[in-house]
Simulated scan of single mutants.
Amino acid sequence: MNTIPQLGLGTFRLQGQQAIDSVSNGLELGYRHVDTAQIYGNEAEVGAALQAAEVPRREVFVTTKIWTENLGGDKLIASLKDSLHKLRLEQVDLTLIHWPSPQGAVPVAESMQALLEARAQGLSAAVGVSNFTKALLAQAIDAVGASNIATNQVELHPFLQNRGVAGFAREHGIHVTAYMPLAYGKVLADPAVLSIAARLNATPAQAALAWSMAKGYAVIPSSTKRENLAANLGALALRLSAEDIAAIDGLERGERLVSPDFAPAWDR
């Protein structure tokens, strides 16, 4: 599977049995895109759920992300092999640089070249980046070419629409994956989203996710509740009108929820 499925299952903050149950429920319900990361500390649990599922490996798109301390050319491939061991997989579908190297300690080009080598070795079918600004994305493009960057995964939701980065990616033919698409659930209480959802007989989460997907983004919401996982899948069938999309577009307020002290200088 080469195309990134539009709706995936995020596993950020899920630990132990909770991670196993969420992924197991998701696969059983019909999710075919699972997103994890080295720093989440749950690759082994995700791997256990994948192995136990009655779903052929080729039908599930699996993403992991390389943590900052493993971005050096001498560390990246070994760390990815460790991730594959935990995931019980011979290959992941997508490997991302999770965060750009703090203070540029490891050049973008060095990490991107290591990712291409990992792909050449068959460890990952595709490679990409996460939390990259326009300037950093330009560096990645200069290093390996836009065609070798499968996606830029960024925080993106109605309250932080990241239009500059998304537009820059689109100009270069690079796909965008939206993490935190429901803004930790804050979007679900917004009057505009509630109104649209009520009129369409949908949940607020479905309306917000449908908005992201209408923009062409992949979304990776997470949930520990089976009923929420099931409901979120319903967003795939929901069609928003141009007026609905414009109403949600109007909710932009630059509300960034994820910005650790090692984050890059964000685009304004």
Rank of each mutant, 00 (worst) to 15 (best):
G145E: 07
P102A: 04
E90Y: 06
I248N: 03
L238M: 10
Y179S: 01
D261T: 12
E28V: 01
D267P: 02
H85R: 15
V55F: 08
A150W: 03
G47A: 02
A247R: 15
A210K: 06
A138Q: 13
A146R: 04
L209Y: 06
G41Y: 05
K215G: 03
V55N: 09
P221H: 02
L71G: 00
S147R: 15
A143P: 01
I66V: 15
A143R: 00
G73W: 00
R199M: 06
T11A: 07
S195A: 14
I97S: 05
I245D: 00
P191L: 04
Q17I: 01
V154P: 04
G216F: 00
T64Y: 04
L115P: 04
A53S: 15
V62Q: 06
V193F: 06
R119M: 12
V34C: 00
N228V: 08
Q103F: 15
A207E: 13
Q103G: 13
Q17E: 15
V46R: 08
S212C: 15
A207N: 13
L251P: 03
T36V: 09
K134T: 14
P56V: 08
P100I: 08
F12A: 05
L238Q: 07
G234P: 09
F159Q: 01
Y184P: 02
G122Q: 00
V23K: 01
E45W: 07
N42C: 06
A235L: 08
S241R: 01
E43M: 02
P260I: 06
I220W: 00
P260V: 10
R268G: 14
E28H: 05
V165R: 10
A189V: 14
E171A: 13
A197T: 10
G145R: 02
V129M: 06
L87S: 13
E110C: 09
S223D: 02
V46G: 11
G145V: 06
L116K: 00
G250E: 01
I97T: 10
I174D: 09
L7C: 09
V60H: 04
T133F: 14
T177M: 05
L123Y: 11
A138W: 00
D35S: 10
S130R: 11
W67A: 12
A247F: 06
R199T: 13
S79A: 15
I39C: 13
A189R: 14
Q18M: 10
A230F: 10
E255T: 08
E227S: 14
D190S: 04
N152Y: 08
I141S: 08
P158R: 01
L115G: 07
A78T: 05
R268H: 14
V154F: 11
L257R: 13
V176E: 03
E243R: 10
Y40K: 00
T36N: 01
G30P: 09
L71E: 01
D93T: 02
T133M: 13
V144Y: 04
A192E: 14
L27P: 07
A150V: 01
I77D: 02
L236W: 01
A52Y: 06
T177G: 03
G16V: 09
P5Q: 03
A19F: 07
Q139M: 14
V92H: 00
A207M: 12
A19R: 08
I196Q: 03
R170V: 09
A49L: 02
D74R: 04
I39T: 12
V60M: 04
T95K: 09
